[in-house]
């Protein structure tokens, strides 16, 4: 199915959860902030939230250094 990630179109497997998406992108759940359709997703619920056609994701990845 097609979704939008940071404004760009992407394709993910049908039935994929947000956690699946995070693993697919090699991201660490604790180091990202994810908004699904403008709603922040609680880190504990990433595995329960299933992606749907035309969902819009905003993914902000953090790396160390300050």
């Amino acid at each position: 199915m097609r979704i939008t990630v940071n404004g760009k179109p992407e394709t993910v497997d049908d039935g994929a959860s947000l956690l699946d998406f995070i693993h697919m992108k090699n991201l660490e759940p604790g180091k990202v902030v994810i908004e699904l359709n403008l709603e922040i997703v609680d880190r504990k619920n990433l595995g329960d939230v299933l992606l749907r056609e035309n969902d819009s994701l905003e993914v902000v990845k953090f790396v160390g250094g300050g």
Partner: peptide, 24 residues
């Protein structure tokens, strides 16, 4: 300094009324 702490601050304030300026 730490990525986890940066993400934590972002999650806490992303939908608030304050300006939030992070670095990555």
């Amino acid at each position: 300094d730490g990525a986890h702490d940066k993400a934590m601050i972002s999650r806490m304030f992303i939908n608030g009324d304050k300006l939030l300026v992070c670095v990555s």
